[in-house]
Design a protein around this nucleic acid. Structure first.
Ligand SMILES: [Mn+2]
Ligand SMILES: [Mn+2]
Ligand SMILES: [Mn+2]
Ligand SMILES: [Mn+2]
Lengths: 224, 224
DNA sequence: CCTTAATTTAAGGTTTACCTTATAATAATC
DNA sequence: GATTATTATAAGGTAAACCTTAAATTAAGG
């Protein structure tokens, strides 16, 4: 048998976080990483040292960290597994898209390339996760995301929902309960003064969502 | 996010081992458990203490251990998940039955009841794993295994393969390469003197397998 | 009943991944 | 250039799972 549990889970979660934070800024502050992972900066620094010695990240003291090519490849592999499992959970098992993230966050650490690619094949090589995020290719390429933030729309404009971002069950269920989901077409009816809550028209329904919630949604404008 | 990795993996592997060893003997010796898990008896004892405090096992010093009702339920849940994931890997992803065990041994620790039951439903509530072992029910019942060991057959008898037991890739690939698989019909042609190797007829092929390998196979006799 | 073998406990170690509370070093700003 | 805020390191701790070696305890057989 053999138990010998030295789980790859934590380092893989660090890789994912660093990748995601690195999409906006080239160098990621360890404090930002620590906040993102809800751990203390000291603990994060400790782990970064371990990951530096494994050549997964590069650390420029007082500046920040950045994934090495090896780290980037591994991060993308984890993200690929995560999003493929999400698709599996929604497409094959019929679980709600608002709730698959946490399970996928466990499964993503459990299977190697053989299983991952068999899964991808079975799912028909999907290109996006159930929240609209692109699935990295087996070769380690991350497709460019498309669309603009809902906040950028002006009253009267119509758009289709492309991505619903922070994959937090609470937020997703809130949005889902208001009729927001991938592919839904909406129109901005009104923006309250001082960049306030948006009133949207979805189907025959009018919903009001705050600025915070609106910023979670990426859309593709459509002509009227 | 939150990493906070306190994986349930090790305790769950202990539960599975204790359950399996407990099928033959009521009380399981910690030394037997340690050997089964390839860990030292001292480490096993330590873990048993933790599991006793969690009311998963009962320990009768110098006699052995036994699962509590709570422990038995959890063990069966893990075994159910394991065997369902095995079915998924073979039936849905087309992976060879000789090689799905190790992956399932990772996946079994990753998903809760919601996913497990959705998976069971998707697979059509299978009753056996790809190696012929019964899948415990969601209610925590273990179906009785059927069949007799291949060693008990006498020359001339015909039988159908029902279970192939120690789920070790090496062994399974060895047997598979010799044409042995679930559902295969065979006839015992000859047993070498002193309870030696068996010569079997499988289809139009004659194969010789040692006593050790033969003992891995459970069969259902069929009339000629 | 006594010796032997199995079992348990004690003691001390390791690694990973977390924690807190300092203190030191550097970067950025006034 | 001195002050302030951020970042890093040092020091000491915890908990889970593993390890080894050695001593104590108990069960079982002769
Ligand atoms: Mn994860
Ligand atoms: Mn997603
Ligand atoms: Mn396992
Ligand atoms: Mn099996």
């Amino acid at each position: 048998m053999s138990v010998k549990t030295r789980s790859k889970e934590s380092p893989e979660m660090y890789l994912k976080s660093i990748y995601q934070l690195g999409e906006t800024d080239d160098l990621v502050a360890i404090s930002a990483l620590a906040a993102h992972l809800s751990i203390s900066p000291v603990s994060a620094t400790e782990m970064i040292h371990r990951m530096v010695s494994r050549k997964l990240v590069q650390h420029i003291p007082y500046k920040g960290i950045r994934l090495t090519e090896k780290g980037r490849k591994q991060a993308l592999a984890v993200i690929r597994r995560h999003r493929l499992w999400e698709r599996f959970l929604t497409d094959r098992l019929g679980l709600p898209w608002e709730r698959v993230h946490d399970v996928a966050c466990q499964l993503e650490h459990a299977a190697g390339p053989e299983v991952t690619e068999a899964l991808a094949a079975d799912l028909g090589y999907p290109r996006k996760c159930p929240h609209g995020n692109p699935i990295p290719t087996a070769e380690g390429e991350m497709p460019d995301p498309e669309g603009i933030n809902l906040l950028e729309l002006t009253p009267g404009e119509m758009a289709r929902v492309e991505v619903i971002q922070p994959e937090d069950t609470e937020i997703l269920e809130h949005l889902s309960s208001r009729g927001l989901a991938l592919g839904v077409e909406l129109q901005v009816i009104e923006i309250a003064p001082f960049d306030g809550p948006r009133t949207l028209s979805i189907g025959d329904r009018k919903v009001v969502i705050g600025k915070e919630m609106a910023s979670c949604i990426t859309v593709q404008p459509v002509s009227i």
